[in-house]
Design a protein around this nucleic acid. Structure first.
Length: 681
RNA sequence: GCCCCCGUAGCUCAGCCGGAUAGAGCAAGCGACUUCUAAUCGCUAGGCCGCAGGUUCGAGUCCUGCCGGGGGCGCCA
């Protein structure tokens, strides 16, 4: 067994052990049943009544939440199917009164106070007791309120963060890390077993690292640490590539490039000399990579050390965000599985070498299509160009007509090889129902092909695992609207966090009563919270614009993001409960009580929380959750300002209950968003 | 060239498997702190929902075309 295989076998045992721990943890923390939530039960009862009265088994209806102060009702019921089938005229004239009558009937008399109708809407006002009973249900479940079993039959691999070893973390990793982590939290809250995987790109391009580390050793500045050397090698490679591509000598290089080229390639100054240096470097790097792939002991040992340096370099970032991803698995782990998969595919014919002859045949077919006017000449030319580029590589033809290159013409693996290997091994180890890749939008084409290839190669069926590429937009420069290159965005990540902490540290509301430690803690949590909200409150497919240079406007945006607002709201509720100092009253202790329009809306929104969490998970869209929290916080803040809970030594019991429910839902929601709510702010 | 995303208030965005008078936040203006601590609350103002057709009883939402902005199209990851 070679060194790489040995290393991977040991890793596999560690991974399996951790997998079992996670499975056990899941089994030991059961989630509440979605069907038992007050809103689900109400909807179920309404469906039942509508079904009984229409005599139809399949009744589709939608609920529109209303504001009592505006409509006098809590929600509207709309039977979309019937509306479409009958048209609005008939629906309004005959269906609407019938629906209203059914909803006002004896079956729902204990929960429905009033039913009115106007146009296509049947408006329902619920009895006040239903709301307070709902609040009690929230209080009973406490921190588990919102968690549900909608995904309890699923095992989900969530692949996120995915930094490149020997490169700097950039803003894209920042987004991937937070979005992925929050999504994983959501799936877990919905009952799934979640395997969080940080897929470390630790293999591609490593020939350059292994070669460069030795080749440039005499020239590295002595102050350069190990990890910095790796980054330097990457910079050297990129600089040289650019210089060679430009076909100009040293004279055309800018100051930084000039400095690099003369330091590491002394004596090379003309375009030809640089090209020669480049070719020598590439050839030696290729050789190193091949030895690494073969498991050569020396190369594997150095490679492992390099990966460790790099991971240690990433750690401050993960520590600052307080994110610990369970499985940190390099793509090298999947190399062998990928290679044998490709070998198998070649032998059974699902993959083959794209030879010149095959290309000629395909070109002939394209020419025929042109002659038959099925395609245009530019389309043909483009297809030909794509074909010719892949000559010599091992390809998998896909149902879409595209190809996926799975092995280079020199026999070496590429990322597609290892991504396929990853699918195979992940199925073996985790047996997931879903594999979710939280990776930037620029990789859409890659994943689209990868998922197709997985089916072609028989490591996936049409339904299992369910593949999902959850993509997001990038950061753009606020001034130009253009994408921030990774070189421009690299610096900011950790500094941004530090600046945000400093900012919130100076803004404390309860500063006078807080210890230094509490202040630090609150500031850190607010910083993380504001960053998460800034990223996740809008649809993540869009880009996020970032002002450059001065951090002040960015931090100001963070404050406006709403994260601190939600945290603040939860803290206000918590302050009331703290002042009250006793457990909140139980529904049983409440006699007659008033319920304001605002309270009705607030409670309804709180009771919607499980639905929103499930919906956000189903649509892989954290912004649904984030916006709902902002909505609840908004109503609560308004309520807080106008409805005193404690007056002198008198406490309003129903308001105490509502305050507790609001505090619970906000705290739990924030936690799903990876924001811990500090006790004081 | 092909493909993808986005055009809604001055700005940032919700709303998109069609439905009530198109909603928030920020910015602007006015008002509220001896308080459950104002990181807050209340009020005011602000919209040919990019343009043109089409489908429909009904379109910001669906379809087609166009215009404008951004991105992707490596034997890199």
């Amino acid at each position: 067994m070679n060194e790489l295989a040995k290393h991977n076998e040991a890793r596999r045992q560690e991974i399996i052990k951790l997998r079992d721990i996670i499975r056990k943890r899941r089994a030991e923390s059961p989630v509440p049943s979605f069907a038992d939530y007050p809103l689900t039960r109400l909807q179920e009862r309404i469906t039942h009544v509508l079904r009984e009265h229409s005599g139809q088994a399949d009744v589709t209806w939608e609920i529109d939440v209303l504001d009592r102060s505006k409509f006098g009702a809590d929600f509207a019921v709309r039977l979309t199917g019937l509306l479409k089938e009958h048209g609005s005229k008939e629906y309004i004239e005959s269906d609407v009164p019938r629906i209203a009558e059914a909803l006002a009937g004896p079956e729902l008399a204990d929960v429905v106070a009033q039913v009115t109708h106007k146009g296509i809407y049947v408006n329902v006002r619920l009895v006040n007791h239903w709301f307070l009973a709902g609040v009690q249900a929230v209080i009973d479940l406490a921190e588990r309120f919102g968690h549900n079993d909608t995904r309890s039959s699923r095992a989900q691999v969530v692949d996120y963060s995915s930094p490149n070893v020997a490169k700097v973390l950039h803003a894209g990793h920042f987004r991937s890390t937070m979005i992925g982590h929050v999504l994983a939290n959501l799936y877990e809250a919905c009952g799934a077993v979640v395997y969080r995987i940080n897929h470390i790109n630790d293999f591609g391009g490593f020939g350059f690292m292994l070669e460069g580390f030795r080749r440039f050793d005499p020239y590295f500045p002595p102050t350069l640490g190990n990890n910095e050397r790796l980054l330097e090698i990457y910079a050297i490679r990129r600089t040289l590539e650019r210089a060679v591509a430009a076909s100009e000598g040293l004279s055309a290089a800018d100051e930084r490039e000039h400095q690099i080229l003369t330091r590491y390639f002394p004596g090379a100054s003309t375009a030809e000399e640089l090209r020669a240096a480049y070719e020598g470097f590439v050839a030696a790097a290729d050789e190193r990579f091949q030895k690494l792939e073969e498991g050569d002991a020396d190369e594997v040992a150095l490679w492992r050390r390099m990966v460790e340096w790099s991971l240690a370099g990433f750690q401050p970032f993960y520590t600052a965000l307080d994110i610990d991803i369970d499985f940190v698995i390099g793509e090298s782990f999947y190399l062998e599985a990928g290679n044998s998969l490709v070998d198998e595919a070649i032998s059974n014919g699902s993959a083959f070498e794209l030879t010149k002859r095959r290309v000629c045949e395909e070109v002939a077919e394209l020419d025929r299509a042109v002659a038959a006017e099925e395609i245009t000449i530019p389309m043909r030319d483009q297809a030909v160009a794509l074909l010719e580029k892949d000559i010599g590589a091992i390809v998998v033809p896909l149902p879409s007509g595209e190809r996926l290159v799975v092995r280079r013409s020199d026999g070496r693996s590429i990322y597609a090889t290892r991504d396929l290997g990853a699918i195979k091994l992940r199925r073996e180890i985790f047996d997931p129902t879903d594999i979710n890749y939280v990776v930037g939008q620029e990789q859409r084409v890659h994943f689209n092909r990868l998922f197709q290839a997985a089916q072609v190669l028989g490591i996936a069926t049409a339904t299992k695992p369910k593949f999902q590429h959850t993509y997001f937009g990038f950061y753009v420069d606020a001034a130009t609207g253009k994408k921030l290159s990774s070189r421009e965005s690299v610096a900011g990540v950790n500094e941004l966090l530090a600046a945000a902490v400093t900012h919130f540290r100076a803004r404390s509301a309860e500063g006078g009563t807080m210890t230094e430690e509490e202040l630090d803690q609150a500031a850190r949590q607010l910083a993380v919270g504001s960053i998460v909200f800034n990223d996740l409150k809008r649809d993540m497919k869009g880009s996020v614009s970032i002002a450059r240079g001065d951090l002040t406007p960015i931090i100001a945006d963070f404050e406006k993001s709403g994260g601190p607002y939600v945290v603040y709201s939860a803290c206000r509720a918590r302050a009331i409960l703290r002042k009250y100092g006793k457990p909140v009253p139980h529904l049983r202790e409440i006699g007659a009580f008033e319920l304001s329009d605002q309270e009705a809306l607030l409670i309804f929104r709180i009771l919607e929380f499980p639905d929103k969490a499930a919906k956000a998970a189903d649509e892989d869209n954290p912004s649904i959750l984030v916006r709902h929290l902002l909505e609840i916080a908004g109503i609560y803040n308004s309520y807080y300002a106008s409805a005193p809970v404690l007056e002198g030594n008198k406490a309003n019991k129903s308001r105490l209950m509502i305050t507790r429910a609001a505090q619970l839902v906000l705290t739990t929601g924030l936690k799903l968003c990876h924001v811990e709510c500090p006790p004081k702010i």
